[in-house]
């Protein structure tokens, strides 16, 4: 690096106007490397950002513990009653039960990926490094969905293995080959990935960790459950279309008997559409607003 400025002796003060003694910068003097960085470089940058903050490790660790751990725990607790037929529920409803809690961490992770940048001012560094803001969001979204999908599937599989061990002991276990089991394990990853995107979009719109997180959780959990109290078929439809209810059914082998839900893949398609619309609005706002 020849042209690297060093803080050595003070150079003589040049004239106010650039004279002939001023060195013209050689355009090829730049540090080596990729001259026209593209999406791959932006993705790499987001990858580094993602894994170099503690909240990532915490969120993913909790996601696994809550998802796999609570599923195992509930199966251990209810296995006997299930075998006796006392619960009125199918064992299939319990095999991904931890998702109820692990979805919170997916929401948190998705929110933080954006709002932590707003909270710290990092967003300005991000946008100066990559002024094409759509690319920044695309890279974040791809990374987040990839990681959450893998984490969701791994968590569900471990939870299934743990929970099913107790169910099997009581003779009410589910084989992997049974209807909907594989779909639900895969669906865990899909649903959590979608939920992460949903939270990311909310974060982009709201730009404030606590507010975005609260609204995200309220929409998915609280409002989603309250909607079941709405009267009539109209109310039932509203409840079925709420993001958490629509998206969640793909991640369950069989729903609990309480609320009506859409068929797994129909529900997931509805959920994806909702996330896509929200994300589109968020990206448009992000591109227009001052960083």
């Amino acid at each position: 690096m020849s042209a690297t400025p060093t803080a050595s002796a003070a150079p003589p003060r040049p004239a106010s106007t650039p004279g002939p003694d001023v060195v013209r910068l050689d355009p090829n003097r730049h540090v080596p490397g990729v001259r026209r960085p593209g999406f791959a470089q932006v993705l790499h940058a987001e990858w580094v950002k993602f894994w170099t903050v503690r909240s990532t490790g915490w969120s993913l660790g909790l996601l696994f513990l809550l998802g796999a751990g609570l599923t195992t725990l509930i199966c251990w607790a209810v296995a006997e009653d299930l075998a006796a037929g006392d619960t009125g529920e199918s064992p299939a409803s319990f095999i991904t039960w931890g998702l109820l809690f692990s979805q919170l961490t997916a929401l948190a992770l998705g929110t933080l990926v954006v709002t932590s940048e707003y909270g710290t001012g990092m967003i300005r560094a991000s946008v100066t490094a990559v002024p094409r803001r759509g690319r920044v969001v695309a890279a974040k979204a791809l990374l987040l969905t990839g990681v959450l999908f893998v984490a969701g599937v791994v968590t569900a599989v471990i939870g299934y293995l743990g929970g099913n061990w107790f169910l099997d002991r009581e003779g009410v276990g589910l084989a992997l080959s049974e209807d909907g089991v594989l779909r639900a394990l895969l669906g865990n990853g899909l649903y959590l990935a979608g939920l992460g995107l949903f939270a990311l979009a909310l974060g982009l719109l709201i730009r404030h960790t606590a507010a975005a997180l609260t609204i995200g959780m309220a929409l998915v959990l609280v409002v989603g459950n309250l909607a079941y109290a709405l009267p009539g078929t109209w109310g039932e439809w509203v409840a079925k279309l709420m993001p958490g209810n629509a998206g969640g059914s793909v991640a369950q082998v069989a729903p609990f008997s309480g609320g009506a839900v859409l068929a797994p893949w129909t529900g997931f398609a509805v959920f994806c559409a909702e996330v896509a619309v929200l994300l589109l609005v968020a990206v448009l706002a992000f591109r227009r607003r001052d960083a």
Binding site: V31, Q41, H44, V48, K49, V53, T120, G121
Partner: peptide, 24 residues
Amino acid sequence: ARALHPGRSARDHLRWLAASNGIP
């Protein structure tokens, strides 16, 4: 204003910036 995440190390901060613009 500081445009940094307080939990990241200085090197990691420079690392993602370098990556984003293809700087070795």
